[in-house]
Structure formats: C-alpha cells, structure tokens
C-alpha cells in the first residue's frame, strides 16, 4: 500500500542463491524467481518497482498469470505479509488492442 512506509538501506548480508531460482515465474517475459529475488535484494520493494526493473507483468498478458506469484516472492524476500504488497497499477487497455483498431474510433469520425 502506498501508505505503507518502507525504510530502504543497503543489504548487509550478501545475496544467497536458492535451488529454485532458475524457475520461470513470469511466463511472458521469462523472468525467473532468482531474478525477482535479486531485484528485491537490489532494493525493488514494490510490485511496480520490480515490474519496471525486470518487466515482470509487462508482457502480453500484462501480469494476469504471474502477479500473485511475484507478489508472494517479494513478500517472502522482505519477510512481510503478502497483503502489504500492493498489486501493480491497473492500466488501460485491459486487453491488447491493435493500433489500427485503436485508431479506428467511431466517436471521432462522427465529429
């Protein structure tokens, strides 16, 4: 939540790799669990920050498949309840729209 205050200082311990790090989490952009864990270690502590840093949820499906998993991983890395991690902002269009169709907008033609 935006109201959630996060103090961010450099990590003191070195990053520890885990066995399941190579597993794909974001199917569209092929982002692994390890990359997400590393991003959190690097200071990306919200879903939007991880998204901007790694492109998780920026692919064709716009996070429909992975956002819950990404959130769980961030929460786990930060040792906070998952409910405290806000889901990435919702954006138009909620389905991909070809530019030719977006441009073909009847309201404007009628003017």
């Amino acid at each position: 939540m935006k109201e959630c205050v996060i103090r961010r200082t450099a990590a003191k311990e070195p990053f520890m790799a885990k066995l399941e790090d190579s597993m794909i989490v974001c199917r569209c952009e092929e982002i692994t669990k390890g990359e997400i864990r590393q991003a959190v270690y690097d200071g990306m502590m919200t879903m939007n920050e991880v998204k901007r840093y790694l492109r998780t949820g920026m692919g064709l499906c716009q996070g429909q498949s992975c956002s819950r998993k990404v959130r769980d991983i961030i929460a786990e890395e930060m040792s906070v309840p998952r409910e405290t991690i806000e889901i990435s902002s919702a954006r138009n269009p909620i389905r991909p729209v070809p530019m030719s169709i977006y441009a073909n907008d009847k309201a404007c033609k009628r003017r």
Binding site: P93, R95, I101, K106
Partner: peptide
C-alpha cells in the same frame, strides 16, 4: 466504457 468491437472502438 470503451469497447473494442470488430475492427473499431466504440464508446
């Protein structure tokens, strides 16, 4: 509400 219908957008 913006709607994609066939080859165009409708409002």
């Amino acid at each position: 509400v913006t709607v994609m219908q066939g080859d165009h957008m409708e409002y």
